[in-house]
């Protein structure tokens, strides 16, 4: 194991994939030469190592970037393209939703699309709602797209390798604010399997199901509540599609309580699917109503106190847990 940042872990995965398979290439706005220079950024240094033939800086053309990925993957390449910020995926959405997701199905399984789209997510950098908007529920609602969302350096590396070598299209969400987070990462290239949630804290009183940066919010809440002798079982889903139902159902059967947490808006958010699944499949184990802790249904505000108000905090998780602990 080696210590590295989340951003370096992503960089390491890209480096390994580029090294291992000549059909892997990167494309996006500034993936080669960026306006930011920081060794913790995922594509830092890759242009120098692999050259402009494989690390393609593109025009500001999200539809074409996504089209490049779909068309090139249909020909057998393994494109790894970047859509700079999550809300920009709307400009690429036709290529992803109507093509990457559907063309294999509609071809009767004849054409494959082994592509990865890296997209940066995050609330709390004051950029406003056109740069910060968690749209994972949009993606998850489209059959045919996988959706990975790592919360730590080890998963960032393992899941990105898994995404690149998955023969299906994968939307890979990177939590920008974690790029500088340090953690232990496996050497070499052991992938992290998709559809396998991680129990990041073992507890008995209440289950928290979450993913991405919100995992850290849940862990802070768990730490505080442990002082009141309330013990939380914290589950990091790691991949939203496919979803590991068993791990969360087993946890709820043990604790009898569920709080779903995410940084995305509450209404029709991914958490609603978690709550519905648990209500359908583990209803008899529930001792209290399922609670959702999510962002209010407004665009991400820019003003610091409003943005902080928007993002679900450990305190909101603690309140939700207390409310159902009785």
């Amino acid at each position: 194991m080696v210590m590295m940042s989340y951003g370096q872990a992503l960089q390491s995965a890209l480096d390994i994939a580029l090294e291992k398979d000549a059909n892997v290439f990167l494309a996006g706005e500034g993936v080669g030469t960026s306006i930011h220079v920081d060794p913790n950024l995922p594509t830092h240094g890759l242009l120098e190592k692999y050259g402009p033939g494989r690390i393609k800086d593109t025009p500001v053309s999200e539809a074409a970037i996504a089209g490049l990925a779909v068309g090139a993957s249909a020909m057998g390449l393994r494109p790894v393209v970047e859509i700079m910020f999550f809300p920009f995926i709307t400009l690429a959405s036709d290529m992803l939703v109507n093509h990457a997701a559907k063309l294999r199905y509609m071809s009767g399984g004849k054409t494959d699309f082994p592509l990865t789209v890296r997209v940066k997510a995050g609330v709390n950098f004051g950029a406003g709602s056109q740069h910060s908007h968690n749209l994972e529920a949009w993606i998850a609602h489209t059959p045919g797209l996988k959706l990975f969302y790592p919360s730590n350096p080890a998963d960032a590396k393992g899941l990105l390798l898994e995404a690149i070598f998955d023969p299906n299209p994968v939307i890979f969400v990177e939590e920008m604010l974690l790029y500088w987070m340090q953690g232990e990462v496996a050497e070499g290239a052991p992938p992290v399997s998709s559809g396998k949630a991680n129990i990041v804290r073992d507890g008995t009183d209440c289950t928290i199901v979450t993913y991405g940066g919100a995992v850290h919010t849940a862990m802070q809440a768990a730490e505080t509540l442990s002082k009141e002798e309330i013990s939380l079982d914290v589950i990091d889903l790691r991949t939203l599609v496919p979803l590991d139902e068993n791990t969360m159902l087993e946890s709820v059967r043990k604790t009898g309580r569920l709080v779903v947490l995410h940084d995305a808006n509450r209404f029709c958010g991914y958490g609603a699917e978690i709550a519905a699944t648990v209500a359908e499949k583990a209803f008899s184990s529930l001792k209290a109503p399922i609670m959702r802790v999510a962002a209010p249904d407004i665009p991400v505000p820019v003003s610091p106190p409003q943005e902080a108000f928007f993002k679900p905090s450990p305190e909101k998780v603690i309140s939700a847990v207390r409310a159902i602990m009785g």
Partner: peptide, 12 residues
């Protein structure tokens, strides 16, 4: 949609 798809295929 066909032109960006074709552009990707031609890139390959």
């Amino acid at each position: 949609a066909s032109p960006p798809l074709a552009m990707g295929a031609a890139f390959a």
